[in-house]
Amino acid sequence: MDAIYSNATLDSELLVAANTGSFRFRDPISAEKFLFLMECLTYAIFTVGFVGITGNILILCTYWKVGFTDSINISYMAMAVSDLGCVASIVWSGLCWNPGFNSVVAIEARDVVLPTGGFATTAFGKITAMITAFISLERCLCVVFPLKVKTLITRQRTIYFIALMYVVHVLPTSLVYVVVRFEWHFSEQRNRTVLGVKYLRNPTEQTITDVLWVFHSLPLQFIPLIIVVVCTIFLIITLNRSARWRSGNSKGITEDRHRRNEPEISSGKPRASSKEDRIIKTVILIAIVFIVCSSPAAINNAVTRAEPEYRASGKYRKLNLFVAGSTACLNTINSSVNIFIYYKMSSKFKLALKKLVCLVD
């Protein structure tokens, strides 16, 4: 939560440093380079964000048409909602860092970015992480307990779990609006009245800040990541073992029929197993993208907690903010690519999406 109390002074420090050439902190990234890099990140976020917002809206509409016969479709749709919220909040945060936007709006965009975009990104990102962990764990249970999984994970329990994740992550994050106040004030630098943010520091607000610190602490970030990593490794091993068994079994049956001069007879079982394999492959792809895109953010937060000078009030603050912006771009990618995975792996989703966009009758 160091960023809560230091983010408001960042603009003035950067402007002073850029104009005078003197830096309060010995950051390896200069003020001018920092502003340039952040501007480049915003354009990357806008590009990926447009794809993400469009894609997640299409996912929601498509799964609404496909239906929820399979409980995993409920999870896919719930994840699309959190991904949409995550991408939208990241795009807004990127917009706040864009110099062109700052020059035309009557708000201190880089002051309001944290309460209006940063915390929403964190909340929706954690919901996506928990749903990804839930989906991965569900597939593992399907492998370990194939006959009991339908009673262990029902549609009703899936809905309850997802609703709980939204409540648990959204409510604590909304407490930030008790800590901050949006106020109009005159900006001498811009020579106009602008909307800014004031952070309250009385004991009650400090307690709320401490609660938010604990809630966004490392254990809650690493737990879903560890679950996804373990489940993904297990699913990959299971999928490879199943493929080798089917290959060997099919080869043995074919050779036996050739010896007996019997015609080959197709069976319906491979189709059923093929459907399960496609679901497992879909979950593995989602998990791998999540691991690749989320690990840098987790590592960056761990370094932030371990090294005081790397925090928002330390001498490497600009480096910290640039890395955080880069990880936000990765999170945007993570929340934007699922539509391509579903389209590639699910024939039912592919057909429904084509009908939705009028590519087929």
Rank of each mutant, 00 (worst) to 15 (best):
T173Q: 07
S174V: 11
S174P: 01
V178W: 15
F182V: 04
F182T: 03
E183Y: 10
W184S: 12
H185W: 02
F186P: 00
Q189S: 12
N191C: 07
R192H: 09
R192W: 09
R192Q: 15
R192C: 12
V194L: 15
V194K: 06
V194M: 14
G196T: 04
Y199P: 00
R201S: 15
P203E: 10
T204W: 12
E205F: 04
V211I: 15
V211S: 09
L212A: 09
L212F: 07
W213V: 04
W213K: 14
F215E: 07
F215C: 08
L218P: 01
P219V: 08
L220Q: 08
P224I: 02
P224N: 06
L225D: 00
L225V: 09
I226V: 15
I226T: 13
I227Q: 06
V228N: 01
T232R: 04
T232A: 07
I233E: 03
I233A: 14
I233K: 07
I233L: 15
F234T: 02
I236R: 08
N240A: 09
N240S: 11
S242K: 09
S242V: 03
S242C: 06
S242L: 11
A243K: 13
W245D: 03
R246I: 00
S250M: 07
K251T: 07
G252S: 13
I253E: 12
T254Y: 12
D256G: 00
R257C: 11
R257T: 01
R257S: 06
R260V: 01
N261Q: 11
P263N: 06
S267K: 08
P270I: 01
R271Y: 15
A272Y: 08
S274P: 00
S274T: 07
K275A: 07
D277N: 13
I279R: 04
I279F: 05
I280S: 06
K281A: 10
K281P: 00
I284Q: 02
I286Y: 02
I286R: 01
I286P: 00
I286E: 03
I286W: 00
I286A: 08
A287K: 05
I288M: 06
I288Q: 04
I291Q: 06
V292W: 03
V292Q: 04
P296E: 08
P296G: 04
A297I: 04
A297T: 08
I299H: 03
V303N: 03
T304W: 09
E307N: 14
R311D: 13
R311Y: 05
A312R: 02
A312T: 10
A312S: 15
